[in-house]
């Protein structure tokens, strides 16, 4: 079937394209991109005033299934993703059961097959149950089809275990995504340590709890010449550590989410629990995590920790 998309603002960074033009699709592939395409198509979409993008990839998404279907499911989450223009997601393994074995991955793959509305890639768990005690069988996870591993929601506290995991990921050629948080420092905090925690009378999460762990993760990865990807960077100190490591040639990449460069801790001041997250919203000086162009260390942007936020954030186009 031929589909013609007319007059949209076509944005295609891979081909340095950002202009109003037409796209012709034939048999499921894009056959022509140009101005004023004359072709007879079974379906014509008038995209005047609209933006036409390649399907977006969100590489940090929580779909909560299996285990917390009351919060979200593969189906509801991918539906929401499509609404925001995201056609591929990388789903985090902090499910119940965690994605720490080939059997569990298989279970998830079946659910995806049955109910996913977008492409779902799987991130496996680094340690069994994400408890940080014993490594998962990472080779088996790779064989079953994961594209990355992470304990997201937790960090691997043991240096030894983290080193082994980095080595395995490096050798198996899958990406290790690190949720950098030293829980002894974040100490059950709920908002940023500082203005917000003091004014609201709540336990604060210090920036140290993030950037000190970032420093450790980056150091280990550098030492082993293994690639590492730091998840949801929230403060400028973390960005600086990563930038410096990159300059030295380490294979460090990282990601942040739109809320970390558009909102600050002031957003929680009314006790709005929609603004409560981990890592927490930080201060005005940390909004600079947005500066991708300058230091090109923010390699990916994604919707953040939970898919429920995805739709509204992309609508607001921060």
């Amino acid at each position: 079937m031929k589909i013609l998309i007319k007059n949209g603002r076509v944005v295609d960074p891979a081909n340095n394209l950002d202009e109003v033009c037409d796209i012709l699709i034939e048999s499921g592939k894009i056959s022509k991109v140009g101005k004023n395409i004359k072709a007879s198509a079974e379906k014509t979409i008038d995209a005047t005033g609209k933006i036409v993008l390649p399907g977006l990839v969100d590489m940090h998404v929580h779909l909560r299934e299996p285990g917390r279907e009351d919060k979200e499911t593969i189906s509801s989450g991918t539906k929401a993703a499509l609404k925001g223009g995201v056609t591929s997601v990388l789903v985090m393994p902090n499910t119940n059961p965690a994605m720490d074995s080939a059997e569990n991955i298989k279970l998830l793959q079946q659910i995806i097959k049955d109910s996913a509305k977008a492409d779902v890639f799987i991130c496996g768990a680094i340690t069994k149950g994400r408890l940080g005690q014993e490594l998962s069988d990472i080779k088996a996870l790779k064989k079953q089809g994961v594209v990355a591993i992470s304990d997201d929601g937790a960090s691997v506290d043991s240096d030894k275990l983290m080193e082994e995991a980095l080595k395995l990921a490096r050798d198996e050629n899958i990406l290790l995504i690190s949720h950098a948080e030293d829980k002894t420092l974040s100490n059950k905090g709920v908002v940023n340590l500082g203005l917000t925690s003091t004014r609201l009378g709540l336990k604060g999460i210090s920036k140290e709890s993030e950037y000190k762990r970032v420093a450790r993760d980056v150091e280990l990865a550098e030492k082993l010449k293994a690639p590492i990807h730091i998840a949801h960077v929230s403060c400028k100190e973390s960005v600086e550590i990563i930038a410096k490591a990159k300059k030295r040639g380490a294979k460090v990449t990282c990601e942040t989410a739109p809320h970390y460069f558009s909102l600050t801790e002031e957003a929680v001041l009314s006790y709005d629990t929609n603004m409560k997250m981990n890592p927490p919203l930080r201060s005005k000086s940390d909004l600079g995590v947005r500066k991708t162009k300058k230091i090109s260390s923010l390699s990916a942007r994604n919707s953040g920790l939970s898919a429920w936020k995805l739709n509204s954030l992309w609508q607001s186009r921060s």
Binding site: S197, T198, R199
Partner: peptide, 8 residues
Amino acid sequence: IPPGIEDM
């Protein structure tokens, strides 16, 4: 002494 109390 909590951080940021001076801002109050």
